[in-house]
């Protein structure tokens, strides 16, 4: 293994509060069970990586936390998904309010076909902020946080579609930051990007992790090892339902996995 152990081990836990947790969660698409009895505590202001083979339900699992699966007809959730003290699958939960607090970044950068400024201002505007001065402040702050400000400050009025892929993805992160979420979900945010753009996003994630709870799905083992504090390994059972195999500090998952299946996956992919 050509891994840097020092890098893995320096993820000292700075905060042990639980921000999100799933309790015996199962997810069904119609009759097909995509996730089975998953219980997991996600720490506040840390980066948690979800890894596992393709189709094991990583995206489905991530989309539990902002109820994005609600958009899929026939999707059903059993069990509890708790943010702070609230089960977000309670009947009286406001999904719109939830998604303000739990933002999401997608695999393929999806900036709106508007200007850079309008993209970032989109969320705040919809949430009732109309004052131009205030909006400009939010846009600048979010773009700075997303490490994009210096690159786009002269072309705020230009179409976001003219940015490079990596810039677009950071813009999408800025768009989420602008609504001041507490949690940011990222579904393979770098899989459409080149290595340099990927490293920039990873740096960005590290710097955001002091203020935000971040959950990231990734296929890239090095990336999981580089950026995450905690890692969860999901896998499919025979009926293709995803289960949680192992969960723990990233250093432990990658250097000393407790489960044979985790070890096989890590070494197969990683060694």
């Amino acid at each position: 293994m050509n891994m840097n152990h020092a890098l893995l081990n320096n993820r000292a836990a700075h905060n042990n509060e639980t921000k999100l947790k799933t309790e015996q969660v199962s997810l069904f698409y119609g009759t097909f069970q995509a996730l089975r009895n998953i219980s997991l505590d996600i720490r506040e202001k840390a980066i948690t990586a979800i890894i596992g083979p393709s189709g094991c339900g990583k995206s489905s699992f991530l989309r539990l936390f902002n109820r994005m699966n609600d958009l899929i007809i026939g999707a059903r959730v059993d069990g509890r998904v708790v943010i702070d003290d609230t089960n977000i699958y309670d009947r009286d939960i406001d999904v719109v309010e939830l998604r303000k607090r739990v933002g999401m970044v997608f695999q393929k950068p999806n900036p709106f076909p508007m200007s850079v400024l309008e993209n970032v201002a989109f969320g705040p505007r919809r949430h009732g902020k109309k004052n131009r001065h205030e909006l400009e402040g939010i846009v600048e702050r979010s773009l700075r946080q997303a490490a994009l400000w210096d690159e786009v400050k002269d072309k705020l009025g230009q179409s976001a579609l003219a940015l490079s892929g990596g810039q677009q993805q950071r813009l999408c992160i800025a768009r989420v930051l602008a609504v001041e979420p507490e949690v940011i979900l990222m579904d393979e945010p770098c899989s459409a990007l080149d290595p340099i753009a990927t490293l920039r996003i990873e740096d960005l994630m590290r710097s955001l992790s002091s203020d935000y709870t971040i959950v990231i799905v990734t296929h890239n083992m090095q990336q999981a090892a580089r950026v995450s504090d905690m890692a969860a390994f999901l896998m499919m059972e025979k009926d293709r339902a995803g289960i949680l195999v192992e969960y723990g500090p990233t250093s432990q998952i990658f250097t000393n996995p407790q489960d044979k299946r985790t070890e096989d996956y890590i070494t197969g992919r990683f060694g």
Binding site: I83, D84, I93, E97
Partner: peptide
Amino acid sequence: MAIASAGLSKSLRRRWRF
């Protein structure tokens, strides 16, 4: 922290968006 969460859980309740 507990106070913050209480505030959060309250505001997550559904609003009547007329």
